[in-house]
Amino acid sequence: MLTGKQKRFLRSEAHHLSPIFQVGKGGVNEQLIHSVQEALEVRELVKISILQNCEDDKHEVAETLANETGAQLVQLIGLTVVLYKESHKNKKLILPRA
């Protein structure tokens, strides 16, 4: 579980990132989950945008992505989701202590 201080740090790190995935009309599917898991292993911090034509609730999409990928939900602002998962091989981010 991330502390408030850690979430603030991750939000500041994610600010300059561009979304690399989009959730559209099809919603969250196995292919998307697999791709996000691979991206999290390489990058640790990922931004995902939810398109206007997505039929699912944005909170539901964010929770599903976080749960299925094993990541922490850092932020859901507007239609943008920020996820964090510590990498086993490509550790880049060092979180501040609680």
Rank of each mutant, 00 (worst) to 15 (best):
M1Y: 11
L2W: 10
L2T: 12
K5C: 09
K5H: 07
Q6I: 13
K7L: 12
K7F: 07
K7Y: 09
K7C: 06
F9W: 08
L10H: 07
L10P: 01
R11V: 02
S12F: 11
A14V: 01
L17S: 03
S18I: 10
P19L: 06
P19E: 04
I20V: 15
I20G: 10
Q22E: 15
Q22C: 10
Q22S: 14
Q22Y: 07
V23K: 03
V23N: 01
V23P: 00
G24H: 05
K25D: 11
K25F: 11
G26A: 14
G27E: 01
V28C: 02
N29F: 13
E30T: 10
E30F: 06
E30K: 10
Q31V: 11
Q31M: 13
L32E: 02
I33H: 04
I33A: 05
S35Q: 15
V36L: 10
Q37Y: 00
Q37V: 03
E38M: 15
E38H: 14
A39F: 08
A39L: 09
E41H: 12
E41K: 08
V42Q: 14
E44N: 07
L45A: 02
V46A: 04
V46M: 09
K47H: 11
S49I: 11
S49G: 02
I50M: 04
I50F: 01
I50T: 02
Q52A: 12
N53M: 12
N53V: 10
C54F: 02
C54M: 04
D56N: 13
D56S: 13
D57A: 06
H59I: 12
E60L: 11
E60P: 05
E60Q: 14
V61H: 01
V61N: 01
A62E: 01
A62G: 01
A62P: 00
T64W: 04
T64L: 15
L65N: 03
A66F: 04
E68L: 15
E68K: 15
T69F: 01
T69Q: 02
G70K: 09
G70M: 09
A71F: 01
A71P: 03
Q72S: 14
L73D: 05
L73F: 13
L73S: 05
V74E: 03
Q75E: 15
L76W: 05
L76F: 08
I77Y: 09
L79G: 06
T80A: 03
T80H: 03
V81L: 04
V82F: 03
L83S: 07
Y84G: 02
S87E: 05
S87K: 01
K89I: 08
N90K: 13
K91W: 00
K91E: 08
K91L: 14
K92R: 15
L93F: 12
L93A: 04
I94M: 10
I94T: 15
A98E: 08
